[in-house]
Design a binder for these strands. Sequence first.
DNA 1: ACAAAGAGCACGATCGGTCGGTTTGTTTGT
DNA 2: ACAAACAAACCGACCGATCGTGCTCTTTGT
Lengths: 212, 212
Amino acid sequence: MTTDGRLARGARTRTAILDAAVALATEAGLDGLSLGQLAETLGVSKSGLFAHWRSKEELQLATIERAREQWSEQVIAPALRVPRGIRRLWALHEARLDFYAAAVLPGGCFFGNAEFEYNARSGPVRDRLAEALTEWIAFVERLGAEAIAAGELEPDVDVRQLAYEFEAFGLNAALRSRLLAPESAYVFARRAVLDRLRALCTDPTLLPEDSR
Amino acid sequence: MTTDGRLARGARTRTAILDAAVALATEAGLDGLSLGQLAETLGVSKSGLFAHWRSKEELQLATIERAREQWSEQVIAPALRVPRGIRRLWALHEARLDFYAAAVLPGGCFFGNAEFEYNARSGPVRDRLAEALTEWIAFVERLGAEAIAAGELEPDVDVRQLAYEFEAFGLNAALRSRLLAPESAYVFARRAVLDRLRALCTDPTLLPEDSR
DNA sequence: ACAAAGAGCACGATCGGTCGGTTTGTTTGT
DNA sequence: ACAAACAAACCGACCGATCGTGCTCTTTGT
């Protein structure tokens, strides 16, 4: 740190900029993200941002990649530390809700917000978001297939349908976290997934109690 | 109509303006709605809009009310023509998906988009959106209670939880209608609700086949 | 004649983006 | 070892476009 409190030279890296961009875009939207506000937050001039990215669109794409990294570290990684099967599926959903509940990003879900924004549009940003969503669904689907292979999920379960339903619950929790009564969105999302897993699994003792 | 193709005087009513506002806001967002674009679409000068509403915020609130009217006419009313019980619940969900699929509003769901936009904000618009969402959830909950009273739904079903889950499926279908593979979002939403109703109802013959 | 609806224009603010110049850290030549 | 050379990082000022909004004047229906 320098004496004036600003970041020292070199510490003002692309990653630091993108972390701030993710936070701002989560609240204001990926398009509503203001380069002026972002620069001001970082204590950097607006034109300085254009030294790293040639246009706002390039910065948006880089912001998406950074948000994916955060998602991998804070949602996917904790779930992968749990043995594969039903419990990993549940851990993934729990990590997701915890990620939303964390006060770091009070605006809900970066990807949910961005996907809503770009649902009816076209261009590279929309394509990247659609690609990320498809990959995410496929990942959850794979965890479901692993649970079947482990004999913890009924073999006739449609894992793609299951992944879609989990996604719906997670998205709804992120979206309505502020609009519905506080926390109730998370409680409903927990119960919905837990009920669904309990109905489809071969050994209910692998799942936690429904106490919450 | 006048000879230049514009709307005749008096036909340029508040309702006509608000219908256009709903359509534009569904695509661009309630905040991204441009008064200039709206005026141009209607063949009206921008300042003419301020004869009806004193500010953009007032117009946004009026737009929300108009969207609620459309929702009542095109989603709620068709369901209420079906006898109360399981079939009405299913009819409501089908009418909702049909409403999304209609090409009139290709931008997805007006309310879903607006709720996403205002999830992390405050003010009268946010409050009105939250109120509308609460009322909607309560309405679906009431249909569930009616189905229990009619003996068509298991009496121990948590109708509030059920309403929440249906909302999650509907929202996800609206959001991802363009991002996921075409139509697949609707197919998943249909199956999810149908499976859920089939598991909880007392007489499965009341529900349609799972052929689709 | 009168009131409402609308047109036209101008305003301040903010947006993404550009340009020229300055600072800084690293590399290279000797 | 030391300074010249270079490229990346960064700043302040500025541009054109668009935004919401207020003002004045004209048109129109009753």
